[in-house]
């Protein structure tokens, strides 16, 4: 197939990850009471964005 699935996967996770990071940094910290005091949006957003970046990198390298 002419489309490498890693490109859309990478783009989506990078975008959603960054959305979460932004929300985690700027949003109301009181909402993290339910996630046991962890700013889950910030940290998991970073994880998702990182995963997206790796996917995009792999797609570019055509590994």
């Amino acid at each position: 197939m002419k489309i490498d699935i890693r490109t859309p996967v990478g783009l989506m996770f990078a975008f959603v990850g960054l959305l979460l990071v932004g929300f985690g940094l700027l949003g109301d910290p009181a909402i993290y009471e339910r996630s046991l005091g962890v700013n889950i949006n910030l940290w998991w957003g970073l994880a998702m964005a990182g995963f997206g970046a790796i996917m995009l990198w792999l797609a570019r390298r055509r590994l």
Partner: peptide
């Protein structure tokens, strides 16, 4: 719904 705040809940 118990653990996820808005944001993560969307995911």
């Amino acid at each position: 719904s118990h653990y996820f705040p808005q944001g993560m809940l969307g995911v």
